Amino acid sequence: MSKAKRLLDILMFVTTKKKFTAQEIADEFHISIRTVHRYILDLSDMGLPIYSEQGRNGGYTVLTSRFLPPILFTEEEAVSIFYAFESLNYYRNLPFDTVISSVEHKLYSSLQSEAKIKIDKIRSYIAFWNPKRTIDTPLLNDVLKYSIENRNLHIQYDSKSGIRKKHIRPIGVYAHDGLWYLPAYDYHKKKILLYRVDRILSILSTEENEDEFMNLKEWFNFIEVKNPIRLHVLLTMEGIRQCKSVPYFEGFVVTQEDGAGYIDTIIDRGELNFITSLFLRLGSHARILEPKELIVGLRKQAEEILTMYQDDN
């Protein structure tokens, strides 16, 4: 049996047992104690965190249960995994940012020269682009951690009306358009609101919860409409194109045979402020029929812009 195969077998054996003696390995693989010690030194040099204990009841302990045995990938699999990491490069902050960089480096370094040349060439022809934001999100890891741990948070939040203290129950975090968002239950307003993670200035304290709450996946599948209102909009071909590029709208767009189309759906009234700016950007490519509140909001914003640019002469 080759040394590489023997090392792999011993690695899988010790990571399963966690605590073992040299004699156990010698008996399992029918090798000498001296050979066992050489193999353990080799595994330690490879990065396996092994702690040795001297004495009558001594032996070896693998210091972490999260160390994985080697996984064999084909070249195509390795390239696809590498580009899964590359797709995250345009985000300024990521959960586990240092770990992701370390994994990416290890994966690239382990590839054969042909695969490295392939990756280097592909880099010149493909990118998973998001707007490169200069805004820091220093509390991203903490917010994600407390979401997973099912904790309430008392935070300081930089809202449009100024810095406010919030008591929230986070659901999870997601990235969109280069920014990180946190849907969370607001105990004061008694509903789920959407927060920008970069606007969380500090986490003042946390509280444990005994009961379970919905997670991010469940929230995406169930967004409650408490105050329903009809959204009915006629769209030109350009309006169709632009609406399909906005995640909020794309599931509502209906395209007709002539290329034009419409949106006719039910939304929550609380979304009106959010979508007003989206429709203002569409200009004449979207004609709103309902609701009247949205038309009034668009007229108000348009008048404010006209007033700002009035010619005094």
Rank of each mutant, 00 (worst) to 15 (best):
Y195M: 06
T134N: 15
M237D: 09
R196H: 14
R123W: 00
S101H: 14
I192E: 12
V225I: 15
N89A: 11
V14I: 15
H176L: 14
I40Y: 02
F20T: 07
G297Q: 04
R133E: 15
E293C: 01
S113H: 12
F222M: 09
K121E: 12
N89W: 01
D258M: 03
D198L: 09
G162Y: 02
L278H: 14
H30Y: 10
E304Y: 12
I163Y: 01
R56S: 10
Y125N: 07
S32R: 11
I126Q: 01
E212K: 14
I288V: 15
T98C: 04
S2R: 05
D312S: 08
N57Q: 12
Y91M: 12
Y187N: 06
L282V: 01
D97W: 01
Q156C: 04
L63M: 15
L7A: 05
P183W: 00
I81H: 06
I163A: 07
Y51E: 15
T21E: 11
Y187A: 10
I171M: 07
S161T: 10
I126Y: 01
Y248H: 07
P291W: 00
A127M: 11
Y125A: 11
L11Q: 07
V225C: 08
R199I: 02
H154I: 13
E24P: 08
H176T: 00
P70G: 06
T206M: 03
N141A: 13
L107R: 02
S159N: 07
E28N: 10
S113W: 05
P247D: 13
N150T: 06
P138W: 00
A26I: 06
D311P: 00
K190L: 09
S110I: 02
I10H: 02
D312W: 04
I305Y: 11
A286S: 13
E76V: 08
N152H: 12
I25Q: 09
H232F: 11
E303N: 15
L7E: 03
Y309R: 04
G270C: 01
D158E: 15
F274N: 03
P183A: 08
V296M: 11
E250P: 00
E257R: 12
M214V: 08
F128N: 04
Y60V: 08
L153E: 08
E224W: 01
T61Q: 14
L231H: 02
P131C: 01
M46S: 12
V233S: 03
G172A: 08
S113A: 09
I81S: 08
P138C: 12
L234S: 06
E290Y: 04
H30C: 11
F249Y: 01
D312F: 04
L144T: 06
D158W: 04
R230W: 02
E86L: 05
I119T: 07
G59A: 10
D136L: 13
E114N: 14
I119M: 13
Y195K: 05
M46T: 05
E271P: 01
F73W: 09
F82T: 06
